[in-house]
Design a protein around this nucleic acid. Structure first.
Lengths: 142, 142
DNA sequence: GTGGTTCCCATTGACGCCCATGGTGGCCCA
DNA sequence: TGGGCCACCATGGGCGTCAATGGGAACCAC
């Protein structure tokens, strides 16, 4: 099963690096992903990461629209302006840049959360809160 | 991946220069772009930049239209009248001219935003605001 | 000349690449 | 089943390189 599952919280070191959980790195390795596409989530204060094929999927969505429309322009503002390629160092760590910090509120610890075909970086408290919130709403439904 | 991605904010120095993020310069170098074509975005208060091939693409679009139509006329006004060539100095900086300042409202800092096949210069607060607005409107994406 | 550019060079801090260490869990073997 | 060994993962830090920024001086145009 090649999915991103579960969640874990790791510490950011003095140089601003954090280890990606080995479980997630294993999924990436199986898909032979070298470079990660990271984007600022469209709903939550979290940064999502996956292989470059996700970006291509997003770009196909834009491609189906009038390239000069305000709609396509705004969408590109999010997936291009709000996205970036990242790569891990030799030890499987990534640098927590301002691009990530400003959007998520992350300071010294990161919660990695699996989301199936991608995973996300959260500020630990924000993740806690979002998760219990989702649980509440879910029980209301059923 | 040869795309303009992500966003970053740099300071304008006393001479009115600003460094183009190295990530973007790398993309330009890979395409062997020497001279940049800059134009005013059709929707937002931002100045876009890319290699000259983008101008040629625009011109082909005009060429395929009735040369006496109001559409072709307006288009030419935007891409020719609203466009200019620029080049970077030895350190990869560009001069922030009045052409750029007047249209974008940029004063002392510039936010560079990747847009796939080109990148843009924004007044930092305006970018921030536009992006978060786009995010609110487009929650349907993911 | 005067103002605005362009071409160099200097500085400082950030980042990439490597190697080191400690802690934990799994596994093997007696 | 208890002990011990080993592999792997998270984390720390050194050091060389590069990017972003600042500023001097030559150069050009009006």
């Amino acid at each position: 099963m090649n999915r991103f599952l579960s969640h874990a919280t790791n510490r950011i070191d003095a140089k601003g690096r954090v280890s990606v959980p080995s479980m997630f790195r294993a999924v990436l390795a199986r898909s032979a992903v070298e470079e990660l596409y990271a984007w600022q989530d469209f709903v939550f204060p979290a940064v999502s990461m996956a292989g470059p094929e996700v970006l291509e999927r997003f770009e196909r969505m834009i491609g189906s629209q009038d390239p000069f429309s305000a709609e396509a322009n705004k969408m590109s503002l999010l997936i291009h302006g709000g996205g970036v390629f990242m790569k891990l160092d030799g030890e499987g760590r990534l640098l927590v840049t301002d691009f990530i910090r400003d959007f998520t509120g992350i300071t010294d610890r990161v919660t990695f959360a699996g989301r199936g075909d991608h995973f996300q970086l959260w500020e630990p408290a924000a993740f806690e809160q979002m998760q219990s919130q989702a649980r509440k709403e879910r029980t209301a439904i059923s």
